[in-house]
């Protein structure tokens, strides 16, 4: 019998779901997954000039967020870049 797990390392339903999510973002924004990879690479190289970060922890994606001007939702690029826990103690947010 054909074993999908062996071929993809993951159940094929899950593979389909992930491919589809990337595909729909690409269709709607005219921005391919490779394009996001390039942005991610550049963000990583810039931030690693200042902080110790791990390439594998960096996440870059597209989402929708409330616009600062009104109640509308606008597309937004987000990046999640975890940094070394020893740098910051306690819970706080700092935004510039």
């Amino acid at each position: 019998m054909y074993r999908s797990r062996r071929v993809f390392g993951n159940r094929s339903g899950e593979v389909a779901r992930k491919r589809l999510k990337l595909l729909l973002v690409a269709d709607k924004t005219n921005c391919s997954p490779e394009f996001l990879e390039m942005i991610k690479d550049d963000i990583f190289s810039v931030v690693s000039k200042y902080l110790e970060i791990d390439r594998g922890d960096v996440e870059v994606g597209l989402t929708r967020t409330a616009s600062c001007k009104g109640s509308d939702y606008v597309p937004a690029l987000y990046a999640s870049i975890p940094i070394d826990g020893r740098l910051l103690r306690g819970n706080f947010n700092a935004v510039i």
Binding site: S4, R11, S12, G13, E14, A16, R17, L20
Partner: peptide, 9 residues
């Protein structure tokens, strides 16, 4: 197929 993870639910 959904049950064994080979089809999206």
């Amino acid at each position: 197929m959904v049950r064994r993870g080979d089809m999206m639910s």
